[in-house]
Simulated scan of single mutants.
Amino acid sequence: MLSEERIELMTKLSLFEKREEKRYLRISKYYRSDYIGISLLKNFFAVTIAYILILALFVIYRMDHVMITLNELKLRPLTFKVIAGYLCILAGYSVITYIISSLRYKKAKKSVESYIEDLKKLDRLYKNEAVGTRHKRPGGDRR
């Protein structure tokens, strides 16, 4: 027998699986610290590569200024500026990545917990229906 509540619940679960399964179920498999750590590691490599590319473009664009600085042997201040800039940008993006990863993890955990509760509810509905049909006698209630 079809139950309207069960059909609604199955539809809700199916929509979640289609829309959010890849993202949220994948995130929820990790511990919070592991997920954030992986995100920060990805951030480190992305920021490093981007900084090197931007620095290379800047050096090519301002080649005359770089050559003058190198000729005057002002390498220590130049090196300090490059490293300080890198560390500031890395720190800024790391904070942003940490916040975003924490929020994503929290949202994913909440959604997956709701999904699991709905699965348990659906299981209870099936069990209740199975218990109800087991107690009915075939051919009516004749004794």
Rank of each mutant, 00 (worst) to 15 (best):
G85L: 03
G85W: 10
G85K: 07
Y86V: 09
Y86R: 05
L87P: 02
C88V: 10
C88A: 15
C88F: 13
C88D: 02
I89G: 02
I89W: 01
I89Y: 09
L90Y: 14
L90N: 03
L90R: 09
A91S: 11
G92F: 04
G92H: 02
Y93G: 11
Y93I: 09
Y93E: 01
Y93P: 01
S94I: 05
S94V: 01
V95G: 05
I96N: 05
T97P: 11
Y98F: 15
Y98V: 04
I99C: 09
I99P: 00
I99E: 09
I100E: 14
S101T: 03
S101V: 06
S102I: 00
L103R: 15
L103S: 09
R104Q: 11
R104M: 11
R104E: 10
Y105T: 00
K106R: 14
K106F: 01
K106M: 02
K107C: 03
A108F: 02
A108Q: 05
A108D: 02
K109I: 05
K109S: 10
K110R: 08
K110V: 08
S111F: 03
S111V: 06
S111M: 13
V112Y: 00
S114E: 06
S114P: 04
Y115E: 03
Y115T: 01
I116V: 12
I116P: 07
I116F: 04
E117A: 15
L119Y: 08
L119T: 03
K120Q: 13
K120T: 04
K121I: 11
K121F: 08
K121H: 10
D123M: 14
D123I: 14
R124S: 15
R124M: 05
R124W: 11
K127P: 04
